[in-house]
C-alpha cells in the first residue's frame, strides 16, 4: 500500500478543481454584492501569526461586521475561535494557532466569512498560506507486524515456522525414501 504516482496526480487534480471551483464561486458572489467586499491578508504581530480580513463597501471600511475565520478541512471548515467584529478600519483580526496541521508542505487554506446580512450580503474570501505544521503520515504498513499482510509477517515468525516445517518434512521425506528402499530391497 504505497503512495502511487497516479494517486498523487489524482489528489493534485482534485485540489486544482476544488480551487477553480471556489474561485468561480467567489467571483459570482462578488458580482452580486458589487459594493461590499472582503479581502484577506496574512501578517505577523509580536511574532504571532494573524489573519486579517478587511470588509469594505464602496471602498469605504465597514465597522461592526462579524467575520468568522475558518480553516478548510476535509469534512468541514474549522472555525478559528468566535466571530470577530470589524473595527473602525473595517478590519477583523484572528490569531493563527501555532499547532494547526497543514498538508505535507504545511499549506492551509484560510477562509474569512461574513454571514448573510442586510448590510453586506454573504461574503467569503479564501487564501492559502504555509503557516500550518507540515504533516507526514506515519505508516506502519511496510513494517513486519502480526496484523500486516502475508508478505509483512514478522521475520522471527517466518524463520521459526519455515525451519520447523523444513525439519519435520525433511524427516518425513527421509521416511518415504526408506519406504522406497524397503521396496527395492524386496525386489532383489
Amino acid at each position: 500500500m504505497k503512495l502511487k504516482p497516479n494517486n498523487i496526480i489524482r489528489g493534485l487534480v482534485l485540489c486544482c478543481s476544488l480551487f477553480v471551483f471556489s474561485a468561480q464561486r467567489l467571483s459570482a458572489q462578488d458580482s452580486t454584492n458589487a459594493e461590499a467586499q472582503i479581502t484577506l491578508t496574512f501578517g505577523e504581530q509580536d511574532s504571532v501569526k494573524q489573519a486579517k480580513a478587511v470588509v469594505t463597501k464602496n471602498h469605504t471600511p465597514l465597522k461592526g461586521v462579524d467575520v468568522v475565520f475558518l480553516i478548510k478541512k476535509s469534512f468541514g471548515s474549522l472555525p478559528l475561535g468566535d466571530a470577530v467584529t470589524t473595527d473602525d478600519n473595517g478590519e477583523a483580526v484572528a490569531d493563527f494557532p501555532t499547532d494547526m496541521p497543514g498538508d505535507q508542505q504545511g499549506n492551509v487554506t484560510v477562509l474569512a466569512k461574513v454571514d448573510e446580512n442586510d448590510q453586506t450580503g454573504e461574503l467569503l474570501a479564501s487564501k492559502s498560506t504555509n503557516w500550518g505544521v507540515p504533516t507526514t503520515v506515519k505508516d506502519r504498513f511496510d513494517q513486519r507486524t502480526l496484523w500486516g499482510t502475508a508478505e509483512n509477517a514478522p521475520l522471527t515468525l517466518v524463520v521459526t515456522v519455515v525451519s520447523l516445517v523444513a525439519l519435520v518434512w525433511g524427516i518425513i521425506l527421509y521416511m518415504v525414501l526408506q519406504l522406497g528402499k524397503i521396496n527395492r530391497l524386496g525386489k532383489a
Partner: peptide, 12 residues
Amino acid sequence: FGDEVEDVVSNG
C-alpha cells in the same frame, strides 16, 4: 468523523 492527520473532526 474526521481525519486524525488534520486533527479535525466534524459532526456535520
